[in-house]
């Protein structure tokens, strides 16, 4: 240290944090979550394996008949994606809540809303996006017509982002509760229904040769609404949870 202990004075900083600093905080929070998950690949892989496993159960439970499966495929792929996304939600804020990092996030000069968005973005990059990428393979397992595979991926990319944002509200509300994960599914699944309807609707429309764009546009509108409202709801819920 350049100054000796006796001459060093502690000063109150007077300049406020500027906008550029927010970028640093958001980037670091995003990278931090990605880094953490990179070291625990199991947490990333489990929902994906669940997705694949659950989808492959349906032919055994219903019938291996390709024509029958193809009719149900859009719904099955979407419902299972919903459940897989739900499975990964509980961990979204849990470790930060337990180890006290969440308190530090609340006390930094930046709004909790934007930090929450960074965390949700990391969650989506590690669950929603990989699910959308692996969906074509699962579509083939369920005899989904080839012409709808692209729409399936597009709908999952758009829809899963909404799922992460809406699910973040439920995760934030239940993070302080001892057995929050069961309650989490009760809170979040009803809110997922519009995403499910427009998502599987897009795939069905693609199969039937109908216009796909209206469905995708509606999914986009849902995502926009979720982007506007959920960060506030997540931040408010985190404040409630931290309060005990």
């Amino acid at each position: 240290m350049p100054l000796s202990e006796t001459t060093r004075r502690v000063a109150v900083i007077s300049e406020p944090a500027d906008k550029q600093h927010l970028g640093i905080a958001l980037g670091a929070t995003l990278m931090r979550d990605l880094n953490r998950m990179r070291r625990r690949p199991g947490d990333v892989l489990n929902p994906l394996v669940f997705y694949a496993l659950a989808v492959s159960l349906f032919p055994m439970g219903i019938s291996p008949e390709a024509s029958l499966l193809a009719v149900m495929a859009p719904g099955l792929l979407w419902v299972t994606a919903l459940l897989a996304a739900l499975l990964s939600l509980d961990g979204l804020f849990r470790s930060d809540f337990d180890d006290g990092s969440l308190e530090q996030m609340m006390l930094c000069p930046h709004p909790l809303t934007s930090l929450a968005v960074a965390k949700v973005a990391a969650h989506w990059l590690l669950t929603g996006l990989p699910m959308a990428l692996m969906a074509p393979v699962l579509g083939i397992l369920l005899a989904l017509p080839m012409n709808s595979i692209g729409v399936l991926m597009a709908s999952l990319v758009l829809g899963s982002a909404s799922l992460s944002l809406i699910g973040g509200i439920g995760a934030a509300l239940t993070v302080g509760l001892p057995r929050g994960s069961v309650l989490l599914s009760l809170l979040v699944l009803p809110l997922y229904i519009p995403v499910l309807i427009f998502g599987s609707g897009a795939v069905q429309a693609a199969i039937m040769g109908d216009a796909v764009l209206p469905h995708l546009a509606l999914l986009g509108a849902l995502l926009a609404a979720a982007l506007i409202f959920s960060p506030w709801a997540i931040a408010a819920s985190l404040r409630i949870s931290i309060n005990g």
Binding site: S95, G100, E103, Q104
Partner: peptide, 9 residues
């Protein structure tokens, strides 16, 4: 805080 705020990962 009571919890050190150190992330285990």
């Amino acid at each position: 805080g009571h919890a050190p705020g150190v992330s285990a990962g």
